[in-house]
Write a protein that binds this DNA or RNA. Structure first.
Lengths: 342, 342
DNA sequence: CTGTTAGCGCTTTCAG
DNA sequence: CTGAAAGCGCTAACAG
């Protein structure tokens, strides 16, 4: 294997008969280069297959064109993929690449992950969690432009993007209402996480907007697993005035609800309509009948995070200290995935 | 925000009263430094909270301590997470970090991803696919130490690590045989991919080893989805000599098989034992009864890939041109996940 | 064992 | 508009 020596900017300069400065200028799209010179240079670049060495650029310019992605989620959830994909694709289209570190949520690891990112001069950082929640970030993260994904800090000192759980809960409920249902049960998760609080609020708001009185006996809380959904649904099925529809906190609970409903000899959606949340393909698409559910904006959050990060970056090098405005706290809409359970 | 000036190796040298070379030496664990000097230097480093700048190190030493991870899979499968996690964690423990690029399998994108990796001086590359298959890699990948993950190139010119599908098929079948079953059906996938070919071979081998004649009427092929499993199972259930156990190509098919079995009023595992493949938590753990299945070595493949890559890297800088031995083609075992369906 | 000295490849003044 | 020159922070080769 011939050790093909690295082609440097010097080689291009020589080949094109110009100075290295000029080559650098065309490389960086600097305006003050005559069209003619630029053409020559570009040709040399193409001919010698020159590719600038990132480390040298970073050393000199202090910008790496790398974004750090720190998360606690890779292992745990199939959602992770979409978030990362959204982030990575968006970054790629801007000529950036992603450093990925999975911390499993270990604070010490998070801190050193941030340090490592800083050592590598990342242009910005994305801190993502595996489910929508309040987060505590390592303090050193403030040294780098950062956006929080699927989480937020209580003091809103960092921009963040999360799903709009309230409107998701509202929408899901409205689908049921629009189908003519009036007795709509809600099987909620037990832990007081944002999704748990907000989805049920959306549910109540939708009810209120359609003059349906809220009936507390139609709601219950359980672990958001098939088993929890099964148990909760079973109980609900014995309600003196059985609901005609049920909104489940997530698809896993819906899976359990399906089982309870089936065991009772009832049909979905004729006897009871079911709607879930999360659109976990493996469950939702494969249940019978297919589960109508709400899709979380994973991909979109990944996109937003990177776009926002890039927008915040100092356009040129030293100038324009950002206007110190309050960090955006963005909510992205969840979308309805219609199948056959309503 | 006070723009805290970067602490450089110069500052440390000055602070510790030594030359920069010495500082660099302790940083890189070079042996020829007196314990005393080293202590002083380390103290200065700690005191000034010095952290070396990666770009400068890379520029000078030509090693970035970064590994590239190119894949077509992020979006598509929940398996991806485990592979990435295995790779990332292993890399992290060796002080490396991962560049992640998802190509969706687009060859042109793959090629430029490799170029970008090279520009960034990655120490090595992992090329991972979303399911075990033969791959065609961009030719420029040969410029960097690379290991293939969950795929291989036909000419075996690159090291690769894949699951041992044959032994997995064997094991799964043996579990059934050990439970006393003799009429064991096999619901295979239709596409001629390695898993499809090898799992059934393992199945046949296990049968043969236990003096059970292979009965072709007990095997069938369908799309590896719940629907395919459902249909195939339904047919099988009308077999004049009904099987007492069924080995499904994957958990999705098993899911369909469950439905067919239930509709027939049969019980799992009393009337028919079922074993799947993939251990897709969402399905396998939540089916009732819990599905016994084979776990693919995702995490382990990630670990292996990184370890192998690191082992191949030139230990020092220029020396030791690797012995040009044939690239390893490794198979990693699948493991049994016992639940209640057998 | 350790200080000094070249650069690594590139960007960015500073003069023309 | 463009060439020349000065480093960015670090490592490695070379003298001591």
């Amino acid at each position: 294997m011939t050790r093909k020596a690295k082609v440097t900017i010097q080689d291009i300069a020589r080949h094109a008969g110009v100075g290295v400065g000029t080559v650098s200028r065309v490389l960086n799209g600097h305006p003050s280069v005559s069209a003619e010179t630029e053409a020559t240079v570009r040709q040399s670049i193409a001919q010698l297959e020159y590719r600038p060495m990132a480390a040298a650029q970073t050393l000199r310019s202090r910008r790496s064109n790398v974004l750090g992605f720190i998360t606690d989620m890779i292992a745990t959830t199939p959602h992770a993929g979409q978030i990362i994909r959204g982030a990575q694709e968006t970054a790629w289209h801007s000529g950036k690449v992603l450093f990925l570190v999975n911390t499993e949520g270990d604070p010490e690891l998070e801190r050193s992950a941030v340090d490592v990112m800083i050592d590598r001069q990342v242009d910005g950082l994305i801190y993502a969690t595996m489910f929508h929640r309040s987060a505590t970030v390592p303090s050193n993260i403030y040294a780098v432009p950062t956006v929080l994904l699927d989480c937020y800090v209580e003091d809103a000192s960092l921009p963040s993007v999360v799903p709009d759980e309230f409107s998701g809960g509202y929408q899901a409920t409205k689908v049921l209402i629009d189908r003519g249902h009036r007795r709509i049960a809600f099987l909620n998760h037990v832990e007081p996480i944002p999704a748990q609080r907000l989805r049920v609020q959306g549910y109540q708001a939708a009810l209120a907007d359609h003059d349906i009185p809220f009936d507390a006996t139609l709601t219950s809380e359980a672990w958001s697993e098939p088993r929890g959904g099964y148990d909760a649904m079973k109980t609900l099925l014995h309600h003196p005035q059985r609901p005609t529809a049920v909104f489940c906190f997530n698809d896993r609970m819906a899976m359990g609800a399906y089982e309870a409903i089936r065991q009772q000899g009832l049909r979905i959606p004729q006897d009871i309509a079911v709607i879930g949340y999360d659109n976990q393909e493996l469950i939702a698409a494969n249940l019978w009948p297919g589960l109508t559910t709400m899709q979380l904006p994973h991909y979109e959050m990944g996109v937003w995070a990177v776009e926002h990060l890039l927008a915040e970056l100092p356009a040129t090098s030293e100038k324009g200290d950002s206007a110190e405005r309050a960090p955006l706290q963005v909510k992205l809409a969840c979308s309805l995935v219609l199948r056959d359970s309503v």
